[in-house]
Amino acid sequence: MLDQLYFVLDILPDLLFGFPGQRPGGLLLTLALAIVANVAGFGVAVLLGLGFYSRHRIVQRAVSLYVFIITGVPLLVLLLLVYQIAGNPRYGFRIGPQGAAVISLVLYSGAYQGAILRTGLASVPVALAESSSVLGSSHWHTFCSVQLRYAIHVMLPAFTGQTISLFKDTSAVIILGVADLMSTARVVLGSDLANQPKWVAVYLTVGAIYSVVALLLSRLARHWERSQRNHSLVHLLARY
């Protein structure tokens, strides 16, 4: 029992920060992937949100097709597909596994956040957008500071839920051999047959790390949602 504990303590730095002397990995990389994918994915989602309500039928169709495909396919397939295209000199790209992982996670979270944003945009009262344009705002200004803000505010719980979900989904990058938390554990354990009795302890630790971060994230999100609810002008509007 005690030797298991020592083993876990021994490899804990590797799990958290990656192997010394190599690129950062472990939990640090998992968090970096999740943050980049969420932030850039939100950019994709805004583009998709614009596309959903575009005047051109073909843009609407294309955007819906994109969301349908990305949300209908396992992340593992998407990762491999992106890596095959982006890492293949035949198509003129030379992007490594880490880059391919980032691209696929951005596409993936963009599609999910886009679907959330579409629901949010649909719930914006027409009168709100109309009054903004009557008061002389440009189309763009109305979208950014009225419709988008309102939609984000209404869908805040869904967005934070998706953020936490994406944090857990990043574990799939193991398929490309990216050294995140999950694959670090696998490499440590697989390096020696004598480690076999320690598998359960190590995976319990990995699970605990994931759930502690997920719990912290959801606490933070709840706190943020509450503060938004009390201070936001948009919420005052939403209540009318």
Partner: peptide, 23 residues
């Protein structure tokens, strides 16, 4: 609920398939 929702499905799959027999 808290345990199984906050851990990625991949960790659960590998835990039950590979880690448990190694006990």
């Amino acid at each position: 609920v808290e345990v199984h929702r906050n851990v990625p499905a991949l960790v659960l799959v590998i835990f039950w398939a590979f880690a448990v027999p190694n006990l």
